[in-house]
Amino acid sequence: MADFMLQLLLTFDATLRLATPLILCAMAGIFSERSGIVDISLEGKLLSGAFVAAAVTALTGSPWIGLMAAICASVFMSLIHGFACITHRGDQVVSGLAINILASGLTIIIGIALFKKGGQTPALSSDERFRGIEWFGVNLMDNIPIIGTIYRQLISGHSLLVYMALLAVPLCAFILYRTRYGLRLRAVGEKPESVDSAGVSVAWLRYRALIIGGIFCGIAGAYLSISHGANFVREMSAGKGYIALAAVIFGNWRPIKAFYACLLFGFLDAATSRLQGVDIPLIGEIPIQLMLAIPYIVTVLLLAGFIGRPTPPAAIGVPYEK
């Protein structure tokens, strides 16, 4: 029983680690989509953030500079997206796709030019990464049964970026629902004319939403390559940006709900690696591909209205013209 408890705790622990990039990207997606901009470019921003974080950290030796550079790179990608679909009213899906493909090509080309390692960046030493932080009194808490283990395994010991992701959720909810900017942001995604007629710039509101999204994606990318991993490898984001987008939809474009969706998808991912080849009584062995496909299946079912009713922002995908 104690062994099972520990296994479960370790799975929750892995859930948190795997959900971190999803949570950050989902918050980015919420900002951009609530402002009325479709954001399939989460994937590309995540990938470029991951590459720049690892590359700059490898060159400078400082993960902090790496993190800052990742945020800059990801925001730059956001600005291209904004330039195309806010300033020039281009198609948001096409623009997002262009960014994903550009990120895929650029990370490898620059990676090869800089490091000559076939697109990888050099492995970072443990000082050059954001490592787990041991919380105060872990050893003391060990004396308390169960709670001590939970404290040690689940609450303490994550990297700073994981805690940042967890803080990002209430922060997003606060900005969206409790500030004037958030009110305007939600309005611009529903009825941009109303914001415009109140004398507020639609374009600048949307640009700011994309920039905030870029910051979150940059942190998520840095988490992948200089915290969770120790270097950048080709196509490191591996569809996580799209899963985050699925979580945004699954969470009905709301921060807290999207956060739960990310945890669910992260849990599926964590459970998959533990259930591989395990015979479950009555069910048998579950194909891991099926487990991995669940986020996509539930998103399709949800969008089709088979489970609940999605309510996307009304003006999403429509370029605003005065």
């Binding site: 330039f83 281009g90 198609d91 623009s95 262009a98 493909i101 990120a103």
Partner: peptide, 11 residues
């Protein structure tokens, strides 16, 4: 390819 999608598509 990415640049072409950007310039011929989005822009």
């Amino acid at each position: 390819q990415g640049m072409i999608i950007l310039f011929s598509g989005a822009l």
